[in-house]
Nucleic acid binder design. Structure first.
Lengths: 396, 396
DNA sequence: AGGGCTTTGTCCATTGCATGGAAAAAGTCG
DNA sequence: CGACTTTTTCCATGCAATGGACAAAGCCCT
């Protein structure tokens, strides 16, 4: 099947494409209400978009009191691929032009096996999705990796938890394999973009998105744009110190946030608690599985286990302590909590909120919502699709 | 004298004005190398700027191997006023169109006396500068205040250390008095803009600027733009917690950074040390003056007083601890340290550096300069002039 | 059904933006 | 002095964008 080749020729066309993508109106008349252009000029640009094949006519709109307007829509055959590589699993999804997910696969995986093995697995998952019929090919792909990325080149740099990936040309390699444009970013940045596209952050321009998975990271959005920092490592908050002379962290320092909370720390603390006999619930689960995970703690907490609840509350307080400082610094309009451990839910959220509202200045927290992400595992892949679509829907 | 009335008519003209302001070339030919325009179009835009009176012809440039180019420059009579209101003093300065300071006054003052009294003092200082002949009138004024500002309206909001200023229409009032356009911002933001205009941050797009005066604040610049946050309180880092269950802070919390360092905390700690007889040097100074200030500590440290050096080192470590976290979060390309206590100089700087380089991730600190501001008290007023000049040199 | 009103889409003349080429003006250098 | 370079102006041309006129297509009311 022939894929998308054309790109918008100017800013107006890019604007129109994004409006159509983001659930704006799709009648020519209403589009005119959103782009500051005369009706004549608008007609010209839409006609050109029709010529490129990026949009197609789509019948007539309901009347607004006069002649009915012609509808247009993004060519429905467009397909974007979103890939979200985590520390221990991969998500792959296919979206339609409106970035709605048509098919989604998740598989366990270990990034430490290196780029070649991971790519094989990702390509197999892509093939499976293709076979399921949701796509015959892709017009673009976005991919997130759990570490810093030199964004313009799409190459991971010095990723602590991804040995073997340093300098691997992810963008180039995936583009070769898929035969379409590819963009690469940090996984937390994509989560933030996902929540901005289709989740809780749709109307906010300054926010951050704390992702608590195996480790802890944070996507930073300033003025509607992802802030990546000078070397692409912005948002790397897992090793902020929360306790001087505190616990030893694998990174070499002491008292890091990740030494106290995150999937890894939580599992470890739960296992010690179980071994010390502090919780019958956790001990039973440890007995059954041989090891404990964050999900076990979540389950035990849901069953009313006090030790698990304490672990979650303590962890939330640590995270809240860090977030409180960042809120004072950044003054966001929203804080989103997401990632694997959102299963810990409202116990965690309450603990974070308490800490932030107590520690930050009233002016910064006065009207500051702190909420769980809406999209769960779909956030990353949606953000990945948004990343490449933003790229393709911008002037060539 | 007639003041500037015209504004650039389009983005090209604005671009040209800023190039001329920021020490770019001023021959027509070289300007052409910097703006992506044909020579014909460039000539048209420059001619229009000449008509508006914003720029004037200025002789011929040296030859670059052929016909000599005509020079242009910003109308040299343009004058900007920069006002920097601190907690305990005011700076007022007049700049030429290139934002170079032509006259500068500093006077002690207490913001707590309220806007009316402070305005009287500022206007008297302005009159004095005017009488000195550096300006007959002003084409625009920028003013910084030590607290959060609702930027579009130019109104302080809920400023903790400025009772009586909440909601006071600073922009409106000053504009009335001076008869020219006025922009208002937080003082640390202006310091950051100042260092970006004429100081150490000239070539950096992501950085922050920590101002340690009576209190501690931070100007945040992302992508070359000041980040003000949702309510204008971004950079308010003085009350980030550095010690759980730590010292009581006037803000109501415990363990805030400002409870440990900053002009106020340093003076207080020095006085206790003196009373406890820990330092002969400090005791002597306390005896002499009846109280101690940050300058006394700086002086004692310069004289080799161990207690003072310890106070500075401890404080620097606290500040460094906070900055380390913010560096991980924001991944800046530069950190600037400024404000009143820069007299503490390299002892402070070394202590901050040690802490940051030890605590932040290598990728974020690998090539991260941490330096003292270059401009000292001129940073704020230069930033204020830049603020209003950016405003006036943008399309009407 | 018909007439008046509204909305939408197209056509067209006009204006302004911007380009690139030609030619003139003003230099340098051997 | 002549060949070459750089800068500036001039001009024809093409594209961008507007707004007005008008036709098409709808609504609603009588």
């Amino acid at each position: 099947m022939r894929r998308m080749t054309a790109r918008p020729a100017n800013a107006h066309q890019a604007r129109l494409l994004r409006l159509l993508r983001d659930g704006g109106p799709n009648s020519r008349a209403e589009l005119g209400d959103h782009v500051d252009l005369s009706r004549s000029k608008l007609a010209v640009e839409i006609d050109r978009l029709l010529e490129t094949g990026l949009v197609v006519a789509d019948g007539l709109a309901a009347s607004r009191g006069g002649r009915r307007s012609h509808n247009v829509r993004l060519t429905p055959e467009l397909r974007f691929l979103g890939v979200d590589i985590g520390a221990t699993s991969v998500d792959v999804a296919v979206t339609n032009p409106e970035l709605e997910i048509l098919g989604h696969l998740n598989q366990p995986m270990d990034v430490r096996e290196g780029p070649v093995a991971v790519f094989d697995q990702v390509l197999a998952m892509v093939a499976k999705l293709r076979d399921s019929g949701v796509a015959e090919g892709f017009d673009g792909a976005g991919i997130g990796v759990p570490g810093p990325v030199r964004f313009p080149e799409g190459v991971p740099v010095a990723p602590p938890i991804m040995p073997g990936w340093d300098g691997f040309p992810v963008r180039e390699a995936l583009s070769q394999e898929l035969g379409c444009p590819v963009m690469v970013d940090n996984d937390v940045n994509l989560m933030a973009m996902g929540e901005m596209q289709a989740g809780v952050a749709r109307t906010v321009r300054d926010f951050f998105c704390v992702k608590i998975g195996t480790g802890i990271g944070c996507g930073v959005v300033a003025g509607g744009e992802v802030h990546r920092g000078t070397t692409g490592s912005a948002g790397d908050i897992g090793h902020i110190q929360v306790e001087s002379e505190g616990r030893q962290c694998p990174c070499g320092n002491r008292g890091c946030l990740e030494a106290y909370f995150g999937g890894a720390a939580l599992a470890r603390d739960a296992e010690s608690a179980a071994r010390e006999g502090l919780s019958a619930e956790l001990s039973a689960r440890l007995e059954a599985a041989g090891r404990l995970t964050a999900e076990d703690v979540a389950g035990a907490a849901a069953a009313g286990d006090g030790t698990s609840l304490d672990l979650i509350r303590d962890g939330g307080a640590r995270v809240g302590q860090v977030i409180a400082g960042l809120v004072s610094f950044f003054n966001p309009g929203l804080v989103v909590i997401g990632g694997g451990v959102t299963g810990l839910g409202h116990t965690l959220l309450a603990s974070i909120r308490t800490q932030v509202y107590r520690q930050s200045l009233p002016l910064a927290t006065g009207n500051l919502p702190i909420v769980l992400g809406e999209l769960g595992p779909a956030a990353g892949v949606t953000g990945a699709a948004r990343l490449i679509s933003d790229h393709l829907f911008s002037p060539a």
